[in-house]
């Protein structure tokens, strides 16, 4: 029971309280870039969930069983980036094969997951917080879910904003920035959660 409670606590922490986009400000590029359409936002979110979970798994393994025994912790960043880049490449190939439409709508943002700092962020945070293997994976998964949630919310709002009557100077990017800011403010409210 304690274990389930811990997992739930972690989920709430990763999705709401320490949301990667709105609280840690990681992965802002796809947050603004791919949130124009609900479909592609959903696809991007799924890709990020997958990559973040996989990245957490592999980077944790590499760190614990390769870098620590060899006392090469200083190679953390470059080894993680290498791992993430390969993973993204793999995901790109799989998506291109299985879902060409999704591949097209994601466009340049799929390779950009490589440089999505949320992915590198989750890998490094796992190590810093000294999570064990299971929790590292779960942190990646929940972090990805939090990212997807915010991305989808943003896409929904922006799809409605397309039809809203706005002053010309506010149309498009400016109003999106304001929405992003208000969302971050709203998510700040979660930081008061206590268990």
């Amino acid at each position: 029971m304690e274990f389930v409670g811990k997992i739930l606590f972690m989920a709430v922490m990763a999705i709401f309280v320490q949301n990667f986009v709105l609280m840690r400000f990681l992965g802002l590029c796809p947050y603004i870039g791919v949130s124009k359409k609900l479909d592609s936002a959903l696809g991007m979110g799924m890709a990020v969930i997958f990559v973040m979970t996989m990245a957490s798994t592999f980077t944790w393994l590499i760190h614990t069983y390769l870098l620590v025994p060899l006392h090469l912790e200083f190679l953390q960043t470059i080894a993680f980036i290498l791992t993430i880049a390969s993973l993204v490449q793999l995901v790109e190939m799989i998506i291109q094969k299985t879902a060409p439409a999704l591949y097209k709508s994601l466009g340049v943002f799929l390779p950009l997951i490589t440089t999505n700092c949320a992915v590198l962020g989750v890998a490094i945070l796992n190590i810093q917080s000294e999570y064990n293997f299971i929790f590292a994976i779960l942190n990646g998964l929940f972090g990805g879910i939090g990212f997807t949630l915010v991305l989808i919310l943003m896409a929904g709002i922006r799809e409605r904003l397309e039809r809203a009557e706005l002053p010309i100077s506010m149309k498009g990017m400016p109003i999106s920035m304001i929405v992003a800011g208000s969302m971050a403010l709203a998510f700040l409210g979660f930081s008061g959660l206590k268990f």
Binding site: I62, L66, L67, L75, A79, L82, Q89, I94, K97, P100
Partner: peptide, 27 residues
Amino acid sequence: LYSVLTLGTLGLIYGLGLAFASKKFHV
């Protein structure tokens, strides 16, 4: 030596993995 070997091996494994995947998922 260890750092060079570690990163070299990692890169090699990833490279081979990707090469295999690109064959398998070739469009």
